[in-house]
Design a binder for these strands. Structure first.
Length: 564
RNA sequence: CGGGGCGUAGCGCAGCCAGGUAGCGCACUUGUAUGGGGUACAAGUGGUCGGAGGUUCAAAUCCUCUCGCCCCGACCA
């Protein structure tokens, strides 16, 4: 490709809307352009990168038995109503009507469509197991897109689905996908950390996320350096600090005028925060939920939402709390049955003689004990893991970091097959639901992640595997000799099968070098009067500092060596 | 959805407070010179100032409404 003819140009200045490094570089290098919030065009250079990522995805998915197929992006709403996700998904799912008033949605993922297909196509255990996948456009009307390609509304996703006769077979297949994913990310040049994750709206028993460690990432990760435990903060668990149990004393009311926060109450009464019970109120849909947790801990809202099976969860307003007959700031878990659903973190069992609210303005209670003094509707682990907490597995110190989710794999189980009645007959003639797994990777986000990880102050540094071209050929000066050599080198390398971008523009050396560094093609060849005088062509790897001069006849060999 | 910021030429910005018929840098076009890290000089092209309404003799500038974009948070398959 001749740079003089390439559609899409490099930008000297950073567009004002770009904050994240990958966003800035992809825009500046002429790879992508924004059309609307979270909606991007891929220019020829960016598109080549994306297609190379797709090719790697295909190879790796095919290698584990995946069959590529393609499903539509517009779905009948009915399909989504069957699983209930029509309502659970909320405004992220775009809904509209066609000319005959049929309700339609834009697919945010394809469990519904594939399960509906499987229901029709699969009758017998003899057809199992199988895996299908597609590389297809999704539209999710995100509350907020951000960071260029990191979080967009329209995006391309590789989504795969496997179907099994039983859970054991899914369990046996799942690690193969896991390995294939590791291989995909490694080949694309993205260093990932696999973490245990929260399946969320997808449902199912277990899931793993493949995360790129990055400060600008949207997810908080919990990591144990001593045993290797790694989890998304939304599902991470830690060992709880057990408090010394004292002899249970009887409940005693104390005046705490104006003290409504744990810090105020604890210091006023001279007790440690972990010797108090915190009360937090949520609205799950339109139900008021009273959460009680040890004073030194925080609630993890994702764990909460999962526990309650709530699609929508938000902090309750003070009026909503007061309206239920509970005194905000002095709420007590005692005697609240019927006013709200009472949810407790397991930490309330880890100590006793707690300070809690008295449900009376300006008063708290000492020596509150569970279950002696109050009952709860649900008792579970809903505490957020914090930096420095002890690891649940080995007791080591947990640390937190941020990450970008590049891939997510789920053991779905029978959630969808049950909803659709997707069953098969086993060898004994018994009708059973199909057991499913699903596996997703966002291609554009992966592209952005590689840039996040692999760049310097001058621009992108593509790995050979997904670089838009292998070679960036630069001709300097306007001497006919240079021009002729560059032209014939361009043709020769093209004929040998190299993907080569030839900067044939009449630009100054500085412009050409800077553009080459910005675009980030792995190998740069320079032909100039100076290089010819030195004996040939200058070769330089984008990631290297030094260059070498190679005679014209030996370029092919040297290139082959450098690119492998 | 809550908080903050910004919409003026393809990109980056000034002008707005104190209304008077739009400017700078880069890019682009042409020419000359230059030719190893965004080269110099000269001459040019390009904008209904996001949109609508209002105030005024006069609106990029003041007022009202509206649309869009970014950042933080909420949310996140």
């Amino acid at each position: 490709m001749r740079l003089s003819k390439l559609f899409g140009s490099t930008l000297r200045e950073v567009p004002a809307e770009a904050e994240m490094t990958s966003h800035q570089l992809l825009l500046r290098a002429g790879m992508i352009r924004q059309l609307a919030a979270g909606i991007y065009s891929y220019l020829p250079l960016g598109w080549r990168v994306l297609r190379k990522i797709e090719d790697i995805l295909r190879e790796e998915m095919n290698a584990i038995g995946g069959q590529e197929m393609r499903m539509p992006s517009v779905h009948p709403a009915e399909l989504w109503q069957k699983t209930g996700r029509y309502f659970e998904a909320g405004p992220v799912l775009v809904r509209f009507r066609d000319r005959s008033q049929r309700e339609l949605v834009l697919g945010i993922t394809h469990e519904e469509v594939i399960t509906d297909l499987a229901r029709r196509e699969i009758n017998s255990y003899r057809q199992l197991p199988f895996t299908v996948y597609q590389i297809q456009t999704k539209f999710r009307d995100e509350p907020r897109s951000r960071g260029g390609l990191v979080r967009v509304r329209e995006f391309t996703m590789k989504d795969g689905y496997s179907f099994h006769a039983d859970l054991a077979d899914l369990d046996a297949y799942y690690p193969k996908v896991y390995q294939a994913y590791l291989s995909i990310f490694q080949r694309c040049g993205a260093d990932v950390l696999v973490v245990e994750a929260d399946p969320g709206l997808m449902g199912g028993a277990a899931s793993h996320e493949f995360m790129l460690i990055n400060e600008a990432g949207e997810d908080t990760l919990i990591i144990c350096d001593s045993c290797g435990y790694a989890a998304n903060a939304d599902s991470a668990v830690a060992k709880r600090k057990e408090l010394r149990k004292e002899e249970e004393r009887s409940v005693e009311e104390v005046a705490t005028p104006g003290m409504t926060t744990i810090e105020e109450v604890a210091s006023y009464l001279g007790v440690a925060p972990e010797r108090t019970l915190k009360a937090i109120f949520y609205m799950a849909g339109d139900e008021l939920v009273f959460v009680t947790i040890r004073g030194d801990l925080e609630v993890n809202e994702t764990k909460m939402a999962n526990l309650l099976g709530a699609a929508e969860l938000r902090l309750a307003l003070e009026e909503e709390v007061a309206g239920a007959g509970i005194v905000p700031g002095y709420a007590s878990p005692i005697g609240q049955q019927g006013k709200a659903r009472i949810v407790a973190d397991e930490s309330i069992t880890s100590g006793n003689n707690f300070v809690a609210g008295a449900n009376k303005e300006g008063h708290h209670l000492r020596n509150v004990n569970y279950p002696r003094d109050f009952g709860v509707d649900l008792l579970s682990d809903i505490a957020a893991v914090q930096e420095g907490d002890p690891c649940a597995r080995c007791g080591g110190k947990l640390r937190t970091t941020r990450g970008i989710e590049l891939g997510h794999i789920f053991k779905l189980g029978i959630k969808y097959s049950e909803a659709f009645g997707a069953t098969f007959l086993d060898s004994e003639g018994q009708s059973l639901p199909l057991v499913m797994g699903c596996y997703g990777i966002g291609t554009g986000r992966l592209m952005a992640a590689v840039v996040e990880q692999s760049h310097d102050e001058r621009g992108i540094i593509w790995p050979v595997s997904i670089a838009p071209y292998h070679i960036h050929l630069i001709a300097l000066g306007n001497s006919p000799q240079v021009g002729d050599h560059a032209e014939s080198l361009y043709r020769e390398m093209q004929a040998k099968g190299y993907e080569i971008l030839y900067d044939d523009r009449d630009e100054s050396p500085g412009v050409k070098f800077n553009d080459a560094d910005l675009i980030g093609i792995p190998l740069r060849l320079t032909v100039s009067p100076r290089s010819l005088q030195a004996g040939g062509v200058e070769l330089k790897l984008r990631r290297a500092k030094e260059h070498e001069i190679v005679p014209l006849g030996a370029v092919d060999h040297a290139v082959q060596e450098l690119l492998s």
